[in-house]
Design a protein around this nucleic acid. Structure first.
Lengths: 137, 137
DNA sequence: ATAAGTGTACTATATATACTAGTACACTTA
DNA sequence: TAAGTGTACTAGTATATATAGTACACTTAT
């Protein structure tokens, strides 16, 4: 079976770079557990064909994802989902906290209630750990 | 008194465009209440001087902020903080919810606990509504 | 050994965006 | 009148993004 990816939506009219959109999609699928550890991703050429995107653009996305620890590459075999991180990447967490603060601040400013925001947060966490993988090895 | 802005931090080594950094800074100051409604912002030329940024870049940031509803401009007088929004901008809220979900998902994936995330959310909301402005008109 | 599929590394080109630089004009305030 | 303000242009440069094409090493199956 080929490396079939469920939902990769690329919007060419979106000002966000294509390789960023690909990264976001793959990250989402990994984080939500739609793609399991060591599962094979579509090959660079295959995904390039199915999405009508240049192979170089796909490769850039994969390369970035590898350097960020989400996937790993094996020459001649393909790209695979990396195991979930063992220890906290404090720099990345710090950056995400800053994004979180800015987002919550603006939602609040726009009139969204705290309880509505907390509902979204709670539901998101419920849906993003279907692996059951707690770190105690 | 000139339009003095407390904290405008521009990092030229940051890959994020300068005008985006300016926008983020001004938005943060408005959202957190550091800048009050109808308060005057530094003039395009003044901020350009104090930050050593080209006036055109400042103007682009201000223009964007105006079209997003955060500030308003008066020719010959200056730029001022707009009143906080009266009704929900559902498109913007939807976009912020998507950002919120992606951020919370990744934090959870990286091993941050739900309670830690909720703490940050709660503290952020406490610090971002010093206006006391609830919408019930 | 061969062929197909894979990752990877190049060069080159085109386009869009970001930024700087300079000028000009209408408006407001003193 | 003068100074300060927003705004609208033109022009040029640098960088980022994306495409196109080629090449090579590796893995797997035949």
């Amino acid at each position: 079976m080929k490396g079939v990816i469920p939902i990769i939506a690329i919007d060419l009219r979106n000002p966000k770079p294509i390789y960023e959109q690909i990264k976001d999609n793959v990250k989402r699928l990994i984080i939500t557990g739609a793609l399991k550890q060591d599962e094979k991703l579509p090959s660079v050429r295959e995904l390039a064909q199915t999405t009508s995107i240049n192979p170089n653009t796909i490769q850039k996305a994969y390369k970035d994802l590898e350097s960020e620890g989400f996937i790993y590459s094996v020459t001649g075999r393909g790209n695979f989902v990396a195991p979930s991180p063992k220890k906290l990447d404090s720099k990345r967490v710090e950056a995400l906290y800053n994004t979180l603060k800015a987002t919550v601040s603006e939602l609040s400013y726009l009139g969204v209630s705290e309880s509505d925001i907390e509902k979204v947060v709670h539901n998101t966490i419920l849906h993003s750990t279907p692996q059951g993988g707690k770190k105690n090895d």
